Amino acid sequence: MAVEVSHEGPVLTIALDRPDQLNACTRELHVELAAAVKQARSPEVRAVILTGNGRGFCVGQDLGEVRADGGGGNDVRLRTLYNPTIRALRALEKPVIAAVNGVCAGAGLSLAAACDIRVASEHAKFVPAFANIGLIPDAGASYHLVHVLGYAKAFEWMTSGRHLGAEEARALGLVSEVLVPDALLEHAGERAQALAAMTGAAVGLTKRLMQQALHTTLDEQLELEAQLQGYAGSTPEYAAALDAFLDRSAAKRGG
């Protein structure tokens, strides 16, 4: 097995599990990762953590497999293995937290960038890698990093090949928090559980709404807000939360 999947209540943790190879991506890993992301679509799952076992988060493509394939086929590999998984991660209407435990390089960086929230161990290292071997950012990196960092910062970093430590990644805005290694997964789990406990479909709908905001006009976004708010306001979860809020307010006034 190249991917380990575990549940804790409504939180699904997906751990890449080729620790001796720093979780480099092979066909086997891609197949199992795609199955895990499909499993995350279950209504019982309300938040997802993506991490790596061992010293690495993911160092991207296993280059030994590329050499065995004759050194080419990057476009086919992207279209058939990487891109479907990136699309599936973004299509999940639930939060995905990348818990970056170690080196995060190449397409591993692309995976982390496709997540909604990124937290990192003090030992994490972020490595663009692409330009260093004559390649371009792929698996969504050119898209997500521009939106996370802004064009100028993303371009400068991607073309420099410069390694970022965890604190520099936080300063740049790539990760939101840096933790001691032993606390990383526990903290990611606490954040995931808190998001999973939010009322109804609010978090998933907010993810959909904010993704659409990347390429819509203001008028289109205002209409989408109205549509999704109409749906959210019609759910039993909203009605229960509203009643509870009003009851608490009445109790405070009465006191």
Rank of each mutant, 00 (worst) to 15 (best):
C58I: 03
A240V: 14
N83T: 13
V31T: 14
L214Y: 11
L50Y: 01
P84N: 04
G70T: 11
A99V: 07
L242T: 10
A98P: 00
G52I: 06
R90V: 05
C58P: 02
P181L: 01
G108Q: 00
R18V: 03
D243Y: 03
T159E: 11
A213H: 04
L111S: 01
V48T: 02
V45K: 02
A2H: 12
A113L: 09
M210Y: 05
L242Q: 13
L195A: 00
A113Q: 02
A197E: 12
P95R: 04
E168Q: 13
A244I: 05
L63I: 13
S142W: 12
P43M: 08
A171H: 10
T80L: 04
V31G: 01
R41K: 15
T217G: 08
L12D: 11
A120N: 02
L63Q: 14
A15W: 00
E8D: 12
E8Y: 12
G200S: 08
A47Y: 08
E65K: 08
S160R: 07
S42R: 14
V45P: 13
A120S: 10
T159D: 04
S160M: 05
G230V: 02
I14N: 01
N132P: 01
T159G: 06
G54N: 08
V96C: 11
R170F: 02
A202P: 01
G106Y: 03
A36G: 07
G56D: 03
A2Y: 12
A24S: 06
V146Q: 11
D138W: 00
A169Q: 09
A139Y: 09
Q221I: 08
L92S: 04
M158S: 03
R248C: 03
R253K: 15
V45S: 05
I97E: 06
L164I: 08
A131R: 13
L29N: 03
D69R: 14
E168M: 04
A244G: 10
N53C: 07
Y143G: 01
R248T: 03
N132H: 03
P181W: 00
L12F: 02
L22V: 15
G102H: 05
L50R: 01
E156H: 11
T13S: 14
A240I: 04
I86L: 10
L12N: 03
